[in-house]
């Protein structure tokens, strides 16, 4: 059974370097560094307070139904915005689409610290709730915003992208740690190859700039030492389309999906060896580590440059999770022959 060919037709990117692909590329070209002590929360108690934060984003501009914003945490907002950017970049037709899927990778959640605290502040005995999870549950029952769970359920990231775009294709939120975004991209492309979707918004969206992420990273020793990891945030989304349909609608092709790996091992090593690496390190030096969105962001940057040859995006995480994707230059010959 021959599988269908998958091409990239649109890119969306949000990083600490800029709220958009153009802004990020410019900052990279100028060597501007966006790393600074965190402002989203007071990170001074941690071994390293440095972070890469997305600034100046106006999400309303990217939300078809802005009412949903109250239900979207940071990484979900980033995902929706980056997806909207990718669709616009691709010139993808608007309107409900049964064949448009969404596959986004993310890690962790900030669990809404402020809302939890507010719920406790309203309760009769906040100190008791600190020691006793039973009491905490009751305080939550009495004073927590009922929408809390919906804001923090990780699958909402992909759900909101779909709702804003009325996309009814397959839909998943991948959570394989730091490899999540790239794994989501691999799977999203696979859906098209298999004929389960005709187009997919695939990528990573993450925000590690919150106490829970910092604490967990610090516990692993990653915030200490001469070059600590810099937790960052952002989103990178590509629009994949089935190749013939993309050509038929006159889409501009940025690349074609090649081989992939969804785990560490020889296959991943082979993919990485034979291709130009996506600029993961450069991005990390200037923007910090975007975790699940990092490898997707590096991939988007490569695609934006224009591919002279195959490019490999590789993601690896501290628990051993890994994925890799090879992207080939688009085959222009077929288009000019058509």
């Amino acid at each position: 059974m021959r599988e269908r060919r998958v091409v990239v037709t649109g890119l969306g990117l949000l990083t600490p370097l800029g709220t958009g692909l153009g802004a990020t590329r410019l900052a990279l070209a100028e060597g501007r560094c966006a790393i600074a002590p965190a402002t989203l929360f007071d990170a001074s108690p941690f071994a390293s307070p440095l972070a890469g934060e997305v600034r100046g984003l106006d999400p309303r501009a990217y939300f078809r139904v802005p009412k949903a914003l109250k239900l979207c945490d940071r990484r979900t907002r980033f995902a929706v915005c980056a997806a909207a950017m990718a669709l616009e970049d691709a010139g993808f037709p608007a309107g409900p689409c049964d064949g448009l899927g969404v596959s986004i990778g993310t890690s962790g959640s900030d669990l809404g610290a402020e809302e939890l605290s507010a719920a406790l502040a309203r309760s009769e005995d906040p100190a008791l709730s600190a020691r006793d999870t039973d009491a905490f549950g009751e305080a939550a029952l009495a004073g927590l915003n009922p929408l809390w769970l919906l804001v923090h359920l990780p699958n909402m990231t992909s759900a909101h992208v779909a709702i804003q775009r009325e996309a009814r294709g397959p839909n998943t939120t991948v959570m394989t740690g730091w490899a999540a975004g790239l794994s989501a991209i691999v799977e999203g492309a696979a859906w098209i190859a298999e004929g389960r979707a005709d187009a997919v918004l695939a990528g990573g969206a993450d925000s590690a700039v919150h106490p829970f992420a910092f604490a967990a990273l610090e516990q692993k020793g990653l915030l200490s030492g001469p070059s600590p990891l810099v937790p960052a945030e952002g989103a990178a989304v590509v629009l994949f389309e089935e190749r013939e349909a993309a050509l038929a609608r006159g889409a501009r092709l940025l690349g074609e999906v090649g081989a992939h790996a969804l785990s560490a091992g020889t296959r991943l090593a082979a993919l990485a060896a034979d291709a130009t690496p996506a600029p993961s390190r450069q991005l990390e030096r200037l923007a910090g580590n975007l975790l699940a969105a990092h490898a997707p962001a590096a991939l988007v940057l490569s695609l934006a440059e224009g591919l002279a040859g195959p490019v490999a995006a590789v993601a690896m995480g501290p628990a051993g999770e890994a994925s890799a994707l090879l992207v080939l230059p688009p085959d222009e010959a077929a288009r000019s022959a058509a």
Binding site: S107, G108, S109, P154, N155, S158, N171, T172, T173, V174, M175, T176, G177, W178, A179, A180, S183, E187, F212, A213, A216, L217, Q219, K220, A261, L262, S263, A264, G265, G317, P318, A319, G320, E321, A322
Partner: peptide, 28 residues
């Protein structure tokens, strides 16, 4: 970090079982 990450559980299970092929942790 493990408790925060479905991916960590997946990696742990894979390592224990000797699984080296495709690995995915999702949350729908």
């Amino acid at each position: 970090a493990d408790r925060q990450s479905p991916g960590a559980l997946a990696a742990h299970l894979a390592r224990a079982a000797g699984i080296g092929g495709p690995l995915l942790a999702s949350m729908t």
